[in-house]
Nucleic acid binder design. Sequence first.
DNA 1: AATTAATCCAACCGCAATACG
DNA 2: ACGTATTGCGGTTGGATTAAT
Length: 272
Amino acid sequence: MGRSPCCDKANVKKGPWSPEEDAKLKEYIEKHGTGGNWITLPKKVGLTRCGKSCRLRWLNYLRPNIKHGEFSDSEDKIICTLFASIGSRWSIIASKLEGRTDNDVKNYWNTKLKKKIMSMNHSVEMKPQQVTLLSILQNSTKSSPSLSFTNSSFSYSSTSSSLLSGNSSTSAAQESYISPSKNNSKNQINHVIDQGLVEECGDATFVEQNNIDSVDYIYSEVEDSEKLMFSNAGSVNGLWGENPLDYGIDEIKQLISTSASTSSCNNFLFDE
DNA sequence: AATTAATCCAACCGCAATACG
DNA sequence: ACGTATTGCGGTTGGATTAAT
C-alpha cells in the first residue's frame, strides 16, 4: 500500500534556478508533458530538484503565456474587487487575470497595491467613509482605462455596512454566516464564478453582483474573525492609525468594501 | 564612496484537500 | 474504508537590487 516516498530532501537542490535547469525543465515538459506526476519528473528531466520546486518553477515562470511586468489599472481594479469579495484566494484571482500567476498577484498585492491603496487614502486625508476605490485608483494613474461598471455590475444597498455584509437580514445569510464549511466556501466561490458573477470583458474581468443571493454567497465566505470585524464596521480601532501602511488584510478589505458600500450611484467606482 | 534601509520577487514551507493503492 | 502519496494553495522568508543617508 502507499506510494514511493517523495523527493529525498537531503539531496535536493534549493535556491535560485539556473538557466540550464530552466532549459532542461522547459524542454522536457514541452516535449513530454508533466506525465501527471511532479514527484518523479525531476529524475526524468535530470534535475536534483524537488518535484514541488519544479512544478512551481514551471507554473510561475516557465510555462507559456506568462505575463511579467507592470499590472494595468484594469488588473488593479480586478484584484481589488475580487479581494473585497473573496479575500486572499490568490489562485482564483489570478485565474481571472490572463497570464498572471497566483504568486505574482500575491506579491503585487503585498508589495505595491496594498500600499498604493493605503497611501492614497492617507494622502487624500478623507474620512474612511469618503474614500473610494475610484479616488485611489484615479490618483494613482494619469491614464484611466475605459472601464464601465454598469448598474448590473454592482448593486449595493446604501444601508449595508459593507459589500461583504450584504443582506445580512435574510435568514439564509444568517445561517451561512453562522456555520460555513470549507466545502461550502468552495462551492460559493464556484457559484460566484459559474453564475457569471465574475465575468471577463476584454482583458478585464468584473465581479458582477446582480442579485441579492450572490451577496449571501459572498457573505458566507467570510471567516469568523472577519465577520466580527464587519459587525463592527466603522468603529474598528486602529483602522486609521498613525502608520498609513500598517494595516491588516481585514482593514484593507474593509476599506475596499466601505468604498463600495458608501456608493449611492450606479457605479461604485464613480461616486464622486 | 560607504553604509544602512527599503523594496521587490523568486522560492520555500507547511497545511489541507484530493487521489491513489 | 483507510493510510499514504501527491497536488495545490497561501503565508513567509531570504537574497538581490535600489534608494536614501
